[in-house]
Amino acid sequence: MSPPDKIQIEPAKLRQIAPAAMALRFAFGAVVSMVSGWVGGRWGPLEGGIFLAFPAVLAATLTLIETEERNRILAAQDARGAVLGAIGMIAYALCVWTLATRIPAVAAMAAGTAAWAIVAIVLYRLTWGSGRNRGTP
């Protein structure tokens, strides 16, 4: 399956999103944040932080893509991209966790951002750039 030719930002498309769809995304994100806060208060910040890694809007977004655009392939591509981004975030977290006590925090976060970008780009190229995954999921 091939990704879009070019990643673009189109603010005008925001007007095409139904208010109910926006509310659903907002509500889902709020619920995940509240659960994270509750878990953090009950069992500690480490456990609560794990819930913050949950892509709060992803489930609502995938549902909306499939129902509004009636396109499972687009939803699958979006999910695959989210997984690749999440793996990149793991690289970011490991990098910052390893470096934060050794170098200034800003430098550790910059290194983590670079690690995330490298991992995400390499995974993207392996997934879509090779042309092997051009069919349906």
Rank of each mutant, 00 (worst) to 15 (best):
M1T: 05
P3D: 03
P4I: 12
D5S: 12
I7Q: 09
Q8N: 03
I9C: 04
E10C: 05
E10S: 07
A12K: 02
R15Y: 09
Q16I: 08
A20Q: 14
A23P: 00
A23D: 04
L24G: 10
R25F: 14
R25D: 11
F28E: 13
G29P: 15
S33I: 10
M34P: 04
M34S: 11
G37H: 04
G40Q: 00
G41W: 02
P45S: 13
F51I: 08
L52P: 08
L64V: 08
L64R: 08
L64F: 05
E68S: 12
E69C: 08
R70G: 08
N71H: 02
I73E: 15
L74W: 11
Q77P: 05
D78Y: 15
D78V: 14
A79Q: 06
A79C: 12
G81Q: 10
G81F: 04
L84T: 06
G85K: 00
M89F: 07
M89V: 02
M89E: 00
I90K: 00
I90P: 00
L94H: 01
L94V: 05
L94T: 00
V96R: 03
T101A: 08
T101P: 11
R102C: 03
I103D: 09
P104M: 07
A105R: 03
A105P: 05
V106Q: 01
A108Y: 03
A108P: 00
M109D: 05
A111G: 02
G112T: 03
T113L: 11
A115C: 10
I118C: 06
I118N: 09
V119R: 03
A120S: 14
I121Y: 15
L123V: 08
R125Q: 10
T127G: 03
S130Q: 09
G131S: 04
G131T: 01
R132N: 03
R132D: 01
N133T: 00
R134Y: 01
R134S: 11
R134F: 03
G135E: 07
T136A: 13
